[in-house]
């Protein structure tokens, strides 16, 4: 199997795992941000949004330090697993989760704000438990936000470059994702291979966004 194909599978695996993990943790964060009246909320909102404005290399740099055995998180990980997070798929996954967090949290937060309290109060007075409210009211009523969040998280992870370069390096089969592969081909003046990857990423991203916006538009009409 060529390195590019390996990079493609690695990229899809990374994007899929990142999206799944983000869809588990983000609803809790988004719910708190949507409903909390705490004075600390703007700080945490800023923290979640940080990857939107921060150069990915800055995030990557600090993650690289955190993963190194010279600092506490890296030491703790090494004593637990005997390996380092830097230049590993696990490290890449953590970086991706942090980097794509706002792309998943923000659509969910907007959905939860729009949902309001009215239907939830009605559910309370009908005796629905917390889990029943999540299952029967919150998730179905914010379905479009979940769909948008999943696609944005997945598509954004596909195109990740800066963070991966800093913490993952360029190890085929372990940390070499498509964006890195593309960079490598360009450096080696292999423009034809570079074209294949670039056009592939461009078209797949466009198709994904087109499909999700079409689905959302169709839902609006119902």
């Amino acid at each position: 199997m060529s390195n590019d194909l390996i990079a493609l599978f690695l990229t899809l695996k990374l994007a899929l795992l990142t999206t799944i993990i983000l869809l588990v943790i983000s609803p809790l964060i988004a719910w708190w941000l949507a409903k909390s009246t705490s004075k600390l909320r703007p700080f945490f909102e800023a923290l979640v949004a940080l990857p939107l404005v921060l150069p990915p290399t800055v995030l990557g740099f600090y993650l690289l330090l955190a993963f190194s055995p010279n600092y506490l998180p890296g030491q703790w990980w090494q004593s637990l697993t005997g390996t380092t997070l830097a230049f590993s798929f696990g490290g890449l996954l953590i970086g991706s989760i942090i980097y794509s967090l706002p792309f998943v949290v923000q659509p969910l937060q907007a959905g939860f704000v729009t949902l309001g309290n009215k239907e939830l109060e009605a559910a309370d007075t009908l005796g629905l438990s917390r889990w029943s409210k999540i299952r029967h009211i919150i998730i179905p009523m914010t379905k479009r936000s979940f769909m948008l969040a999943a696609v944005m998280g997945f598509a954004h992870t596909l195109g990740e470059f800066g963070v991966v370069l800093m913490i993952g390096g360029n190890i085929p089969g372990e940390t070499q994702v498509l964006a890195i592969s593309l960079f490598e081909h360009v450096e080696a003046l292999e423009y034809q291979q570079a074209h294949q990857i670039a056009a592939g990423l461009l078209i797949s991203s466009l198709v994904m966004l087109f499909v999700i916006y079409s689905v959302l538009q169709r839902q609006d009409k119902h």
């Binding site: 009215k118 239907e119 109060e121 009605a122 559910a123 309370d124 007075t125 009908l126 005796g127 629905l128 438990s129 029967h136 009211i137 179905p140 009523m141 379905k143």
Partner: peptide, 28 residues
């Protein structure tokens, strides 16, 4: 909590679950 009180409430603005049909609202 309202759940433990077992108090029903008919609101001024009905507050049906808009994503469900009438039957599902009732069955839920």
């Amino acid at each position: 909590s309202p759940q433990q009180r077992k108090v029903g409430f008919v609101f001024q603005d009905s507050r049906l679950f808009p994503h469900l049909d009438v039957r599902s609202n009732l069955t839920l």
